[in-house]
Design a protein around this nucleic acid. Structure first.
Lengths: 240, 240
DNA sequence: GGATGCTGTCTGGTATGCCAAATGGCGGGT
DNA sequence: ACCCGCCATTTGGCATACCAGACAGCATCC
């Protein structure tokens, strides 16, 4: 390898594969061969071997001892479980963020993320920020949530959330976008409550936000995903 | 390597190091040298390199790109954050477990763990189970919590919880045990609510259980742990 | 005498190569 | 014709070896 980006190689490999999984370039269920990936990315197998556990911890792939790794096939249960955890953690994050804001923490990055998210819906020329790379709304929303987490200044929460954020983006990518204007209003209300230091309000609004997302998304996902992992998918794969 | 246990080598190495960290055999702040560990455990550096990220994800060590890994020095903030997360996740686990129990799931393993935990306090001869290895109460409590998680049958919750369980044991090991009889009563009440399928009751009892633990443990931990990681601990380490 | 640059060494990062377990095809036996 | 077992190939697991960045000590220059 001649050129080296600033981030570590295993992390870079994990990022590449993660994006390929999220975009569907690597379809669910497809096998991941260490040698093939190593050759494709022009690295040796070692950093690949270190990248795969990262993706496994984030729930993108599942690997068994001597049988290799495959891209995890998302199920409706996975989606429901993700909403379950977000239901617990995101309200907590908003509450902590509100307390931090009340204590004088800098809320500017969060506000900026909110503006950017709004810009992704209806570009407002008043702000005049050059949107070099037009990221999809799902990424923008993730940015806002991430800034709330950052504001919460809670290392453990940050770690756990980061573990789930990839899957959230993956599912959002699959889900036909819900009404983004309404969602922006919800986001604004949450941010307002945080900035005002109203921890309880922010917590409840965020809980409602998550549950609304579940209510709107699950029916759509129900038509896209199998309800559970077919455990009887071992032998007899000739017809597939 | 001549003999190979059934679990994978990196996981085995992580287990060994984890126990050594929890028991204090590896003191906080001590450096972890890949070659030294590899030689000590009679393996090569590769599985060691794969074990360290596991411990890092569980918060036992912190490593920087080219500067190696050190055993994380627990702070009071770490303890508080752990209680914060447990406050959100354990009540959720109890609620899910209660719903599963109401749906007819097998509650026997949980009851067995409860009995075993009680046995660790006042051995009752009526149950007549041979306690081959006398594990410390902290481990027994972890077993009960783990069984509740298992009963909840929630893959994502299980994953996130497993990420935190190591640190919980680590802190419990440091904390002078709180009154175990009262704790057993709390445990029994929670289990009773779960078995009865009373999700709301189980959830609230568990929340109270966590908060009681926080209330009793934090003052003790405050005398054992530094309040925060000393960021100004880079240069000038000659006197230490 | 103090600060700065250089160099040696330590340690982590990556590549290559070998080994063993698992899988699938093929041949022989019933 | 079907089933069972053997063998080859695939593929992951681990060990060894090499490379590069980081840090400490020393020498040198200011």
């Amino acid at each position: 390898m001649v050129s080296m980006s600033l981030e570590q190689t295993p992390a870079r490999i994990a990022n590449v594969l993660r994006e390929q999984i999220i975009t569907g370039e690597l379809s669910m269920g497809s096998k991941l061969n260490e040698r093939e990936i190593a050759e494709r990315l022009q690295v040796s197998r070692i950093p690949v071997r270190e990248a795969l556990p990262i993706l496994e911890s984030e729930g993108f792939i599942s690997s068994q001892p001597r049988r290799g790794a495959v891209v995890h096939a998302l199920t409706l249960t996975d989606a429901a479980e993700l909403f379950d955890l977000r239901r617990q953690l995101e309200p907590m994050a908003s509450a902590f963020a509100a307390r931090r804001a009340a204590a004088g923490a800098d809320v500017a990055p969060m506000l900026e993320a909110l503006r950017t998210a709004r810009g992704a819906i209806a570009p407002v020329s008043s702000t005049l920020h050059t949107v070099a790379e037009v990221a999809p709304p799902s990424t923008r929303n993730s940015d806002l949530h991430e800034e709330i987490i950052n504001l919460a200044d809670h290392a453990l929460l940050h770690r756990v959330t980061k573990l789930m954020s990839g899957r959230v983006r993956w599912l959002f990518r699959l889900t036909p976008q819900r009404d983004t204007t309404a969602m922006w209003v919800e986001h604004r209300e949450i941010v307002d409550a945080i900035v005002a230091g109203q921890a309880d309000v922010a917590e409840l609004l965020t809980a409602a936000h998550v549950e609304r997302g579940r209510f709107e998304s699950m029916p759509l996902l129900a038509e896209l995903l199998p309800s559970a992992a077919p455990a009887a998918l071992r032998r007899r794969r000739k017809a597939s």
